[in-house]
Write a protein that binds this DNA or RNA. Structure first.
Length: 883
DNA sequence: AAACTCACG
DNA sequence: ACGTACGTGAGTTTT
């Protein structure tokens, strides 16, 4: 069955442009409309499988319509340059798809499409017209379906003549009459003033056409008659303007519109140019989908067997890189599925994972554990943890490609090898998703494709290494890499392998108590609401609060009423159930996340939880913690804080010791800004929020009350986050004006801070990035955006990242140094957790004095600043007591 | 998979 | 005028 798709290129491009955020590629070219256009084409090709295809464009600005009505499309906002610059790209894209395109001076895309649908109809071809313009509906017929975009470009509504009749009660041709009556503001078509869709439809249902309406105007009552008579000429002209011209002088040669599907490599090349990485991966165009094997690196592969494992040892000195594939998100509970060793001769030795457990694998295991056998790997940290649970130590890693890639651009959301190939212009490899499948479809492939994929990864590691090393050098990141992040990876692995003991019985007890309270609260709430519902559903809760109980709506979310804690607190005075709901939320959170969630993470073998720190996620350089997240264990409210009691030392009689930096971010700010006043506060070891209150409110220390201190504290937070009057006003529940005055007052006293904020934003604008004390970078491509929101966000990030990131540098440095000291001092104490500005240890009785002294000493001297770093230490029989 | 909510620094 | 505080991870419901 032959099927023709006709696309209104201009209409779809502008729909896509306004529907998507302003993306831009590395050279600053905007690509959001191109991206939306691409998505639409891909979807159409997949779903419709057209045999014939055409994209029509408007040519130039003046069409025959202007000859009749020069205001046509006047008053319309000029096409923004961000969109017009994308049209050449869209044409190029269409060409890369192998889709014919057409334009004709003096005619709009819809006239071309109108003409083609007429011709196609005559030839008995089925047609789908894709546009964002309702006018197109006039073209619908038995063979011609109109697909109109709905919210964005990803979804379309299909209109057959039946569908049009159902929706409007009109036949397709009457769409022209509809517009003749109601006009179209966007094209500056007047219609009859005061006639909107409703009235126009009513008139058409009665009279059928504009002409009929005009001639029978006398029958119409009231003001409407007057209007119609007065604007009869407008209506006639509007109808004419809205009529798609279906006699464009053109021929349709069907074979010229033939579409045989796109060519993977051609399209892939275009996507690479546009930097559509996600699409490249999703479609596996980077690997060429098997069709263009030539694009992939070719590697000679030897699959190792038990017989050849023994002689493998001869090759070890030649191994340049080893890729160890681990499946599963959590390396503590994951499987190793194979190793690929790339030798300097460019050959890959592939070892299936099963072989690791055979007696013949002794030499390989020894090599992996050999401190002196130098290896380049991808993600040492994760690999070390996974191998650990198989009883294999990993040592001798000298270069980690993942960490290097992260440092070179920490804002990239992931750094998969397949992406890195693209990022550094090396031969592409398949994305894991395409080799393994994803989600429920995940499957380890046959040894052939598996060995090939992993060998290509190993090969890529060897090729990436010199490139990344060069980039690190160029960015002056060698100390950051070799003295901080790389050694830290091993420290993290050892903390995670150690794990922290959790008192499961204590946790279950807590859960039981919570369960009872939760049940009571729920009962009370149902009673107060007059019915039972799912309390965990914000949607249902919103219906109850705002529709049933009629409470005032404070805030809305994208999809409905907001019911977050901030809203509920404001509603509490109106109805007694509200505070119970807040209570319920608090306890339910504790129950599901911290009692049930934590219990699930306790390992049977060890009775401990083994978190995994992500070292290559946070754009600022912070760590993050998963499986479970131990960086967000409750502390602010007493009920939640009790959770900390179940975190206990591994051995009886030991203590949990916690050491946290006091005000590290503000101290860092004092240092980088050089603000004399702020520095002085820390040099005199003052309470910084009190000091801020004194200066902002112009009072003496004794006059600072708790409310002033609270507000000053919020100002300090705001400063660290990249202040805005709006943000501060939200936080303090004051007006924007008042917040603005606070900020102004703050800057007049802390002039150095203001200068820093101005400078850092300027720096970001000139360099495109900002740096931390240890030269960690964060790129801010949106710092020069014309969109206010994007630009403001980038500016705040420019202010915040060096502060948050330098604080991260410092504690990471302290961790590496402490790990070194603990090893040298041969202590039995262990470092267990990092919570951004806090380190947690477990310490035997006889080492308490040593550790109480050593830990803060190292932390405070990790990096010398112009102000002292201060660390508070405490300890107890569990994490709760270490406060 | 996305939206909402909430825990931490 | 614009309309968000910076950085994370996880549980639940809804689509």
């Amino acid at each position: 069955m032959e099927k023709l798709i006709l696309i209104d290129g201009n209409s779809i491009a502008s729909r896509a442009f306004y529907a998507l955020p302003l993306l831009s590629n590395s050279s600053g070219l905007h690509t959001n409309a191109v991206f939306g256009f691409t998505t639409m084409l891909l979807k159409l090709i997949e779903e419709e499988k057209p045999t014939h295809f055409l994209v029509a464009f408007d040519a130039g600005k003046v069409t025959f319509r202007h000859a009749d009505y020069k205001e046509y499309k006047g008053g319309r906002a000029k096409t923004p340059p961000e969109l017009s610059e994308q049209f050449p790209l869209i044409r190029e894209l269409v060409q890369s798809f192998g889709i014919p395109q057409f334009e004709l001076p003096g005619y709009e895309a819809d006239d071309i499409i109108g003409t083609l649908t007429r011709l196609a109809d005559e030839k008995g071809l089925n047609v789908i017209v894709v546009s964002g313009d309702k006018d197109m509906l006039q073209l619908a017929s038995e063979r011609v379906t109109i697909a109109l975009t709905r919210k964005g470009v990803s979804e379309v509504d299909r209109y057959t003549p039946e569908a049009i009749s159902e929706k409007y009660g009109l036949v397709p041709k009457q769409i022209i009459d509809l517009k003749g009556l109601m006009g179209d503001a966007s094209d500056n078509i007047p219609g009859i003033p005061g006639v909107g869709e409703k009235t126009a439809l009513k008139l058409l249902h009665q009279y059928g056409t504009v002409e009929e309406v005009l001639s029978k105007a006398d029958e119409i009552t009231g003001k409407m008659q007057e209007k119609i008579k007065e604007h009869a000429a407008d209506a006639r002209m509007s109808k004419e303007l809205a009529t798609i011209f279906r006699e464009v002088p053109m021929e349709m040669k069907l074979d010229e519109l033939h579409f045989a599907g796109f060519d993977g490599p051609t399209l892939g090349a275009m996507f690479r140019k546009l930097e559509f990485k996600s699409l490249l991966e999703k479609m596996d165009l980077s690997s060429g989908d098997g069709a263009d094997e030539a694009l992939q690196a070719t590697v000679e592969i030897e699959i190792v067997s038990t017989q050849t494992l023994g002689i493998l040892a001869n090759e070890f000195p030649d191994v340049e890189a080893v890729h160890i594939e681990i499946v599963g998100e959590n390396p503590h509970v994951s499987d190793v599925i194979g190793l690929a060793l790339l030798t300097s001769k460019g050959k890959s030795l592939f070892v299936p994972a099963e072989l690791l457990d055979t007696p013949e694998a002794g030499a390989l295991r020894d090599w992996l554990a050999d401190e002196h056998a130098s290896k380049t790997v991808y993600d040492m940290h994760r690999t070390e943890v996974a191998l650990h649970w198989k009883g294999i130590p990993l040592r001798g890693v000298t270069f980690d490609v993942l960490i290097a890639a992260y440092l070179l651009d920490p804002t990239e959301s992931t750094h998969t090898l397949n992406e890195l190939a693209g990022r550094y212009n090396l031969s592409p490899i398949s994305a894991d998703e395409n080799v393994f499948g994803k989600g429920a479809k995940f499957k380890v492939p046959e040894i052939g494709p598996l060995s090939e994929h992993l060998s290509r990864k190993a090969d890529l590691l060897a090729k990436l290494k010199p490139v990344l090393k060069g980039e690190l050098e160029k960015n002056e990141m060698n100390p950051l890499y070799y003295e901080l992040e790389f050694p830290l990876a091993r420290v993290l692995a050892s903390m995670e392998k150690q794990g922290i003991r959790v008192n499961a019985d204590g946790l279950r007890q807590l859960g039981g108590d919570l369960g009872k309270s939760i049940e009571k609260l729920a009962e009370g709430i149902y009673k107060g609401a007059g019915m039972e519902f799912n309390l965990n559903s914000p949607k249902q809760l919103g219906d109850i609060l705002f529709d049933k109980l009629g409470l005032p709506v404070i805030k809305k979310t994208k999809t409905g009423y907001s019911t977050d804690a901030e809203v509920l607190e404001k509603l509490a005075p109106y109805h007694e159930v509200v505070s119970s709901i807040l209570n319920y939320r608090q306890l339910a959170k504790l129950q599901s996340t911290y009692v049930e969630g934590l219990l699930k993470e306790i390992r049977g073998e060890t009775g401990k939880v083994h978190t995994y720190y992500q070292q290559t996620i946070a754009a600022t350089g912070r760590l993050s913690s998963q499986f479970p997240n131990l960086q967000n264990i409750p502390i602010r409210l007493e009920e939640g804080r009790k959770i900390r009691k179940v975190f206990v030392p591994d051995e009886p009689g030991w203590s949990v010791l916690a050491a946290d930096y006091s005000q590290i971010e503000l101290r860092v700010l004092a240092h980088i800004s050089g603000d004399e006043n702020l520095k002085e506060a820390f040099l005199n070891d003052m309470d910084v929020h009190t000091k801020t209150a004194m200066d902002v409110f112009g009072v003496s220390e004794t006059e600072v009350d708790s409310n002033m201190r609270r507000q000053a504290k919020a100002v300090n937070f705001g400063i660290v986050y990249g202040i805005s009057d709006y943000g501060l006003s939200q936080n303090l529940n004051i007006t924007r004006k008042e917040a603005g005055q606070f900020i102004e007052q703050y800057f007049s006293v802390f002039k150095g801070v203001r200068n820093y904020m101005d400078d850092i934003v300027k720096q970001a604008r000139t360099n495109g990035y900002v740096t931390t004390l240890l030269q960690r970078r964060r790129y801010l491509p949106e710092i020069n955006a014309s969109n206010f929101n994007l630009r403001s966000f980038a500016e705040r990030t420019a202010m915040n990242s060096p502060i948050q990131g330098s604080a991260a540098d410092i504690i990471k440095l302290a961790m590496v140094q402490i790990a070194g000291r603990m090893k040298r001092e041969k202590v039995r104490s262990r470092m267990l957790l990092q919570v951004h500005d806090e380190l947690v240890f477990e310490v035997p009785e006889d080492e308490l004095d040593l550790m109480k002294r050593l830990v803060p000493e190292v932390m405070e001297s990790a990096l010398a600043l112009d102000v002292p770093l201060k660390v508070d230490v405490s300890y107890g029989e569990n994490w709760y007591e270490a406060k």
